[in-house]
Amino acid sequence: MKVRNILRRASVAASAIPFALVSVLSQPARAEMYRSVSAGQEDWVRVTFDEGRHAIIANSPGSLGDVDITLYNSSKEYLMHANRFGTDRLDFTVSQGGTFYVKYRMATCANPFGPCNVSLDFF
């Protein structure tokens, strides 16, 4: 699995993966911090998934924001979304590997010092 943000981002190693998740999803986890965004702002990430089961988890470290995520195919056609308050998760199966896009949007941000951080975990 390859992940590429359209804008530059800082990498963060995935230090802990829940055992139950590892046993269900055979792909290695990859947690990364992405461009911080304020309430109402969004950004896009291009991702390459192999055939198989995958998950994307989005959150705002420090619980200052609420990140919503939407998955699109290589033509940027809508596939699915998650917009719960707090941590959002998408679970899906890819029948044919290829390029996908993830749009993340900060629904709310309570950081008094600026934009909220965004973490996306790909499994």
Rank of each mutant, 00 (worst) to 15 (best):
V12P: 10
A29E: 02
S38A: 15
L64F: 14
H81A: 14
N5S: 15
L7Y: 14
N111H: 05
I17D: 02
Q27R: 07
N117D: 15
R84E: 15
S63K: 11
R35A: 15
E42R: 10
N59K: 08
Y72R: 04
D121L: 13
S38C: 09
K76E: 12
V3Y: 05
R89K: 10
N111G: 07
R4W: 10
M106Y: 01
V37Q: 03
A14C: 14
I56E: 02
K103G: 00
P18S: 07
R46A: 14
A31Q: 11
R84V: 14
M33L: 14
L64C: 13
G98F: 09
V67E: 00
P18K: 06
A82W: 03
F122S: 00
T48N: 11
I57W: 03
I56W: 03
D50L: 08
R46W: 10
N117G: 15
K103S: 03
V24Y: 12
Q96G: 13
S60I: 03
A58Y: 01
D121W: 07
Y104R: 04
I69N: 01
K103F: 04
G97K: 04
W44G: 02
M106K: 02
T70C: 10
D68N: 06
S75W: 11
G114W: 01
Y78P: 06
P112I: 04
I69F: 02
S63A: 13
F85C: 09
N83M: 13
V47G: 00
A58N: 05
Y78Q: 07
H54S: 01
R84S: 15
F113A: 15
M33I: 12
R105P: 01
N83K: 11
Q27I: 08
A110S: 14
R53H: 14
P28R: 02
A13V: 12
Q96L: 12
L79I: 09
C109K: 01
C109A: 05
C109W: 00
C109H: 02
L90F: 06
V22L: 11
V12S: 14
P61C: 04
F113Q: 13
R53Q: 13
N73S: 02
C116F: 05
V94S: 00
D88S: 09
D121K: 07
T108F: 06
G62I: 06
V45A: 06
V22H: 08
A29D: 03
Q96N: 12
F100K: 03
I6D: 11
M106N: 02
E32D: 15
G97Q: 06
L120A: 06
A58G: 15
Q96C: 12
S119M: 14
M33F: 14
S60L: 01
